[in-house]
Design a binder for these strands. Sequence first.
DNA 1: ACCTGAACACCGTTCAAGT
DNA 2: ACCTGAACACCGTTCAAGT
Lengths: 243, 243
Amino acid sequence: MQKHMPPSGKGTGTHTDGLSRDAVLNAALALIDRKGVNAFSVRDLARELGVYPTALYWHVPGRNALIAGAVALALRDLTPRRTPPDWQAGVRDLLRRYRQAVRAHPHIAPVLGAQLVSNESMPPELMEHILALLVRAGFEGAPLRHAYNTLIAAMVGFVTLELAPLPDEDADAWADAHRQRMQAIDPARHPLLAREMGRLRQGAFVVRATSGTQAPLDSSFRFWTETVVQGLAAMRAPPSGGT
Amino acid sequence: MQKHMPPSGKGTGTHTDGLSRDAVLNAALALIDRKGVNAFSVRDLARELGVYPTALYWHVPGRNALIAGAVALALRDLTPRRTPPDWQAGVRDLLRRYRQAVRAHPHIAPVLGAQLVSNESMPPELMEHILALLVRAGFEGAPLRHAYNTLIAAMVGFVTLELAPLPDEDADAWADAHRQRMQAIDPARHPLLAREMGRLRQGAFVVRATSGTQAPLDSSFRFWTETVVQGLAAMRAPPSGGT
DNA sequence: ACCTGAACACCGTTCAAGT
DNA sequence: ACCTGAACACCGTTCAAGT
């Protein structure tokens, strides 16, 4: 019944020969950092560790768990130790820290966006911290849950898109083709798109031909952060009449 | 040089025997709807079409293109024909329509969140429409680009998380384990999380044990939408002094 | 307890060959 | 123009066996 249960923390610790769950996950994260999640394979990882592929199954239930564990490592030091009194500063700080953490391991971005729930990558301290910020902002009851969902979506959403991987097989070929496609936009049918093309090419989702890894969207990220902070501030009280 | 170029639209059209790029992509979307993107395989698709796997390569360059094309199909009728005069209503409508489109094909959510850029899934009409809304809201110059990025992230972000697939192998086993994990939260270390547990289990990211497919987060989505609208409204003018 | 080794049932994609 | 058919170089995971 009870498998995948390594030496229990204490014990051994003398020789670095044996694999250990931690060593495996660290190696997995390193490999993902180099090749991306899609190209990440159990067999590659085993090769890297000088071990038969099946040896890994002693420490970890399978490929998915390897990825989830690696992502958890990447988010380990994300949560701040204290909740700042100013909730708006706290939100800004949270978004900034999350972005920093993912930027250190850009290839995990797709997993965070798409499989957030299915792994235990998200530390409970982070969720507690988010709730604390929102309680300080004055949310309670049902709206607290909605604000919680909103803040998590805000934290993950922008960064997932910003760091989304471009096709890395024939990277240059794709980039050229994409640039042409964008330059070929018909100004008659899409006037605004054509007019703003110059600016959008600098760094706009879908239009850009580079990933956020190479060309960070710093000022758009700040804009995003302010939008969220202002929006949450406005949502604290029930909408005051009007249209 | 020029491959993957089917009959050119006109012509034939008499017999439904030959594959045609469109038939292939439609079948791909149907298969993805049933099995999810991860489990989607070229060989399965070929089997379904009663054809050798390699036959598909005549109509489409490879697996990635199959997925991108299928996603593009799912977003085909997303863009509204006209830009409403009220930009706030337009934003609400856009987010709602996007969510509806993805809810019709929930398994494409991960791809949209993570690979938005790399495929041509995003129709140019949609980008034009987004720009039109934001111009109506009063954005121009650099802020227009930032608002564009913000609105796209807002459109994609929440829905990607809401419809993120849970582990579907041992679904029930995972759900039970996850519920226990959440129930075991230590109230001493995570007081707010423990206190709000009852409400959060109903439908909060990371905490919930069901996907948005089965348990939609309707009211949180409305909250999200309002937050974005209010936030954008606040960002139209430069922040007016104050702390 | 931890790893080897063989085996199973798959993959995506290439290339040459058919019609 | 469009598809067959064989082949290549991979996968993740199982199970029994070793030590």
